[in-house]
Nucleic acid binder design. Structure first.
Length: 422
DNA sequence: TCTGGGGTCCTAGGACCC
DNA sequence: TCTGGGGTCCTAGGACCC
């Protein structure tokens, strides 16, 4: 098993677009310019922490002249596609695990030997073709490949084959337990309280104790650490079980009109996603919350509707969602975030077999064609070219993105073409 | 003043059925 | 008054991931 991931992926993408940024300290912000979600190596070396709010980091950023960018997901998604296309060339099977990482299968040479040389060649090719630095970790299981990947970044110039070393135990002993894939904050605390401080100690702790705390997930994790594969490579992504669109507002919302606009905007985006996934939803939930950070009166609420028939028609979903808005608003509870969650997803074709559709079959088909046309227009001429009036014309609550990088968002052609083939 | 977004998996417990 | 046992399905919530 191999794990390949992009180093400081978002920051690296920004530097691909603007080579002058290479070697400079650079951070990328979350949506709404809220938190730091990526740092270049230089920014990390300055001691800028991951995940902290921009306003807290500001003094440090200014002192060191750090370059700050809003996140540009159109760019990162595009670079991700190119990266995955290149990787697929190099491996026998690929699982795209996230925007910046992939698991892969690669057979060892006939003598069962080291894959490090192969890893180095892969790494060099990606750097040459895409301008993106990646790290390559190799091991008998997913968890060990992840671990090897961490070690690769730390000690091995970006490539490490944990399956080729004579004794992996010292390496496992060097890995803090909280950095093991699958150990989050809660489990890390629990482990440390029991004196289990490293990956090695986790592997060797009593299974029954671990099972009691972490269930079968914990047991699987332990097996994977011991080199017994429990997590298979998933080459075809499973169908989504739910789809969510949510955003923080740039300023708190206290009134119904902007809340309805926001909900309408998220619903129409969620409906678009559904159609792209060739799915329809049976259950729609709208949720809201106030800011969890100011004061004592945290407010959260949600309301759901079951659709009479599963749908991915924006108009149908809007009609279901908008009446929920007024149920969620409370006096003196300014909202900071809202979202739409679609569940009970089923594949597109199911409706065909439904005898009691609310619309005659031909009419239903016309709706499908209309939606497909709108999607095509928006793909071709840019998101929001065709919109629902309910989404509002110039909403004041849309997210802040004050430091968005260049043309890539407004003009996809402006992304440098660094295709492997080109 | 200012704190992201989108997922998955598992489990416990309740509803319901025979 | 006394009131079984076993199964399925669903949901909420908690943990994790990037």
């Amino acid at each position: 098993m191999v794990l390949i991931d992009g180093n400081n992926f978002y920051a690296s993408c920004e530097a691909v677009l603007e080579p002058g940024l290479r070697g400079l300290p650079l951070v990328v912000l979350s949506n709404n310019d809220g938190c730091i979600v990526a740092r270049s190596a230089e920014a990390r070396a300055l001691g800028i922490p991951m995940g902290i709010p921009l306003f807290q980091a500001r003094p440090l950023l200014e002192r060191h002249g750090v370059v700050v960018r809003s996140s540009n997901y159109a760019l990162y998604a595009d670079m991700s596609r190119r990266l995955m296309t290149t990787l697929a060339w190099w491996v026998e099977a690929l699982e795209i695990y996230s925007i910046d990482e992939a698991f892969a299968l690669m057979a060892r040479p006939a003598d069962g030997g080291d894959l490090s040389a192969w890893g180095r060649a892969l790494r060099a090719a990606v750097l040459r073709q895409l301008g993106l630095p990646v790290a390559v970790g190799i091991g008998p299981t997913k968890v060990l490949a992840k671990l090897a990947n961490r070690l690769a970044k730390r000690h091995q110039h970006g490539v490490f084959d944990l399956g080729a070393v004579a004794d992996p135990d010292p390496w496992l002993a060097s890995m803090p337990v909280d950095e093991v894939w699958g150990i989050g904050r809660q489990l890390a605390r629990w482990c440390r309280l029991r004196g289990v401080a490293t990956a090695l100690a986790l592997r060797d702790m009593p299974t029954a104790t671990l099972r009691q705390k972490a269930g079968v997930v914990g047991v699987r994790l332990q097996q994977e650490l011991a080199g017994i594969a429990c997590l298979p490579l998933k080459t075809a992504p499973p169908a989504k079980r739910e789809t969510c669109v949510s955003r923080s507002f740039s300023e708190p919302i206290c009134e119904l009109a902007p809340l309805r606009e926001a909900i309408a905007t998220y619903v129409s985006r969620a409906a678009e996603k559904l159609r792209q996934q060739r799915q329809r939803a049976r259950l729609l939930t709208v949720f809201v919350r106030s800011s969890p950070f100011n004061g004592t009166s945290f407010y959260r609420n949600a309301a759901s509707v079951e659709l009479p028939l599963p749908s991915n028609d924006t108009a149908v979903l809007l009609a279901a969602a908008l009446p929920l808005a007024s149920q969620l608003l409370r006096p003196h509870k300014p909202l900071q975030k809202a979202g739409v969650l679609l569940q009970g997803l089923e594949p597109y074709e199911i409706l065909q077999h439904h005898l009691f559709a609310p619309l005659p079959w031909e009419q239903q088909q016309r709706r499908d064609v209309l939606m497909a046309t709108i999607d095509r227009l928006n793909r071709r001429y840019g998101a929001g070219t065709v919109r629902w009036a309910a989404c509002g014309l110039r909403p004041s609550w849309t997210m802040r993105r004050q430091r968005l990088s260049g043309a890539a968002t407004t003009c996809l052609e402006a992304i440098p073409n660094v295709d492997a083939a080109g």
